[in-house]
Amino acid sequence: METILGLDLPTWWFLVIGAVFSGYAILDGFDLGAGALHLFFKKEESRRIALNAIGPVWDGNEVWLVIGGGALFAGFPVVYATILSALYELFMVFLVMLIFRAISIEFRSKEPMHWWRRLWDVSYSISSILLALALGLVLGNVIQGIAIDQNYAYQGTLLDLFNPYALLVAVTTLALFMMHGAIYLVMKTENRLYAKLTILVKNTTIFFVLMFAITSLATLLYIPHMITRYKEVPYMFAFPVLAILAVANITRQIAYRKYFFAFLSSAFVTAMLIILVAVGLFPNIILSTIDPDLHITVYNGSSTEKSLKIMLTFAAIGVPLVGVYTSFVFWTFRGKVKLDETSY
């Protein structure tokens, strides 16, 4: 099999897809976190400011999800088909909540009535919370494995997906996004809302650190295959160390009210957690709880070598372009939020 810089093509695609989904988790993560916190803001002006903090970027951040889904379909069609069919209900909830979040943001300002805006505020917050929980449930089930047979058909039930470990990962994901979103909002606000958010930042950080510790302990105790590779390749232990140091740095930067650096650390933690999962799974992508011989790996689940090579060229061009566009948008709308006649 052809290699590029010492890595074969399926491994490169594994890294590309991991990078794209990391980008989505970092970018849409603070959007979802801001939405989850939305009902904590009682005043109309505060809610409008919070919405306009993500207003210029939330839809662009979802582009990373589209790219990730397309890359997964192109690079690992067997994985795409298996995970979407096995976790069909979770993905349907996810897609419906994406729709509700979008229309909540857009519809809220169309009418001035209090009940109308309250309705879409609740819809926006609930959809954001359910989106984060759905992502966490998907991740939790991928980490511990799914009951797939030799035909890659799911043999479990819907209730099996709501197992204790997956629920723990789901709550941890929500906690991470709430912290990430609170830090982003505090950078974009001022005066009384800023003061309120400094309290929310501390509370959500405590919530995340607690869930991070519990989930890490549960993984060590009940998901032994996730630590096997770290034992086999000792230098990989640097990743969990970096993740822990980054979590500690978030609390340090918040204590000094250096929220930009806290946000960077929060983004780094998000990426590191995905890396920890990827390292623990590799070379597997989907684990079968029925038979270890039925695991879907980067090799038996990938497209043909020719397809991977051609698409990798497109990915090498397209992904950086999206990254440049995303950076341009954030730079253009930097600074504190100011309400005007064009605001939500």
Score class of each variant (00 low, 15 high):
residue 238 A to P: 06
residue 303 S to R: 13
residue 305 E to W: 08
residue 178 M to Y: 11
residue 11 T to P: 09
residue 313 T to V: 15
residue 44 E to H: 12
residue 109 S to H: 12
residue 232 E to Y: 06
residue 160 D to H: 03
residue 226 M to S: 06
residue 343 S to I: 02
residue 49 I to D: 02
residue 231 K to T: 12
residue 139 L to K: 05
residue 92 M to A: 11
residue 47 R to I: 02
residue 176 L to A: 04
residue 17 I to D: 08
residue 63 V to T: 15
residue 209 V to S: 04
residue 79 V to Y: 03
residue 133 L to R: 01
residue 38 H to R: 04
residue 307 S to Y: 13
residue 185 L to Y: 08
residue 147 A to R: 11
residue 159 L to Y: 12
residue 53 A to F: 10
residue 170 A to H: 00
residue 34 A to E: 00
residue 155 Q to P: 05
residue 315 A to I: 04
residue 212 F to W: 15
residue 151 N to Q: 13
residue 195 A to I: 13
residue 19 A to F: 08
residue 125 S to W: 08
residue 146 I to C: 07
residue 81 A to Y: 00
residue 262 A to M: 02
residue 132 A to N: 04
residue 19 A to V: 09
residue 344 Y to N: 14
residue 343 S to L: 00
residue 208 F to K: 00
residue 210 L to P: 08
residue 40 F to V: 12
residue 340 D to G: 05
residue 196 K to C: 02
residue 33 G to S: 12
residue 270 T to C: 10
residue 191 N to R: 14
residue 224 P to A: 00
residue 338 K to G: 01
residue 229 R to P: 00
residue 34 A to C: 08
residue 75 G to W: 01
residue 286 I to V: 13
residue 141 N to I: 05
residue 13 W to I: 02
residue 145 G to A: 12
residue 166 A to Y: 04
residue 281 L to S: 11
residue 186 V to Y: 02
residue 177 F to P: 05
residue 314 F to V: 15
residue 106 E to L: 11
residue 194 Y to T: 05
residue 214 I to T: 03
residue 293 D to S: 15
residue 186 V to H: 06
residue 114 H to W: 11
residue 327 S to N: 13
residue 156 G to K: 07
residue 289 T to L: 11
residue 78 V to Y: 04
residue 305 E to G: 02
residue 308 L to G: 03
residue 34 A to I: 02
residue 233 V to A: 14
residue 170 A to M: 07
residue 149 D to C: 00
residue 181 G to P: 05
residue 170 A to Y: 07
residue 260 F to Q: 11
residue 237 F to P: 05
residue 116 W to M: 10
residue 94 F to G: 00
residue 335 G to M: 12
residue 229 R to W: 03
residue 190 E to M: 10
residue 90 L to Y: 01
residue 19 A to L: 13
residue 161 L to A: 07
residue 324 V to N: 01
residue 160 D to V: 06
residue 242 L to H: 04
residue 194 Y to R: 13
residue 48 R to N: 14
residue 298 V to Q: 05
residue 49 I to T: 03
residue 257 R to D: 11
residue 158 L to F: 15
residue 27 L to N: 12
residue 336 K to E: 14
residue 124 Y to R: 09
residue 82 T to F: 09
residue 132 A to I: 02
residue 70 G to D: 01
residue 309 K to R: 15
residue 337 V to F: 07
residue 266 S to F: 09
residue 254 I to R: 04
residue 239 F to K: 07
residue 327 S to C: 12
residue 7 L to E: 06
residue 319 V to W: 04
residue 14 F to I: 06
residue 216 S to N: 09
residue 309 K to V: 01
residue 315 A to C: 09
residue 139 L to G: 03
residue 190 E to C: 12
residue 208 F to P: 04
residue 154 Y to L: 02
residue 197 L to A: 01
residue 88 Y to I: 13
residue 168 L to R: 04
residue 67 I to G: 03
residue 96 V to Q: 07
residue 240 P to Q: 05
